[in-house]
């Protein structure tokens, strides 16, 4: 099978359409299961009371904000290096969802911070670097919107996206590098997580739901971008002819 033929936007368009329900339906189910476990099964935290339940949306949102940024930069980079249109379109499709999750993590973080720390916002290393992440997304989206020629917009966006990747490890390690108000990592790649099993289960289910949701919504947006750009390309050719 020639997989590379799907690198053409026109070929990938129907494939993306068929893929969407396979991600959207499980996403909806997992959101329901995750919220059920998070609110009905997981016990009240002995330190933070019920306020900790915000983390079931806050932590996945924060992770998605970071993951999607890296993914966006990789797609933008591939699109730039190999002149692959579909890859650049994918980067543009990811940006809005990544920005949405980053904003969600900042807002839910504020809702968490007020009762537990006594403040909505602090210029703490993790929060500040996450705010910068939101600005990077906004910058990427604005830059692409400001340039009329889509291929030039892709290249400019790619430079911004790739340079901005440096911010992601800063966010991740900020709680170790600096003495921050934000608490340290609860779940580590190596070693035991420091939370109760049902809490961890709910968190992981919500993370999976956010991933599936992201794939589905990004594919929907990608299809719109393919239509807009390919349509414009053919119409522009018509005008110039």
């Amino acid at each position: 099978m020639k997989l590379y033929k799907y690198a053409s936007p026109a070929m990938f368009y129907p494939v993306a359409g068929k893929m969407i329900p396979w991600f959207a339906i499980p996403a909806a189910l997992l959101f329901a299961v995750g919220l059920y476990v998070g609110f009905f099964v997981a016990p009240t935290d002995f330190q933070q009371g019920d306020a900790y339940r915000i983390m079931f949306i806050h932590v996945p949102a924060a992770w998605m904000g970071m993951f999607l940024y890296v993914l966006m930069a990789i797609y933008a980079g591939i699109g730039w290096a190999f002149n692959a249109r579909l890859s650049s379109m994918m980067a543009s499709a990811i940006a809005v969802t990544g920005a949405m999750f980053t904003l969600l993590s900042l807002v839910t973080g504020a809702f968490w911070g007020k009762p537990t720390w006594g403040t909505w916002w602090a210029w703490d290393a993790r929060m500040t670097s996450t705010l910068i992440l939101l600005f990077l997304y906004a910058g990427f989206i604005a830059l692409q919107a400001a340039i009329d020629d889509p291929r030039r917009a892709d290249r400019a966006g790619a430079v911004l996206a790739i340079v901005g990747v440096i911010n992601v490890p800063i966010i991740y390690f900020s709680v170790q590098w600096w003495n921050t108000l934000h608490q340290g990592a609860t779940i580590r790649l190596l070693g035991k997580p420091s939370i109760a099993a049902p809490m961890l289960t709910a968190l992981l289910i919500m993370l999976a739901a956010c991933w599936l949701y992201s794939v589905a919504i990004v594919l929907v947006r990608l299809r719109c971008i393919i239509l807009e750009r390919e349509q414009n390309a053919s119409r522009l050719a018509e005008v110039n002819a």
Partner: peptide, 16 residues
């Protein structure tokens, strides 16, 4: 009432 944290918990999920 989420043990008094209702506004913050429901506010977060409403925003989401």
């Amino acid at each position: 009432s989420m043990g008094g944290y209702g506004f913050y918990v429901w506010g977060s999920y409403l925003f989401a």
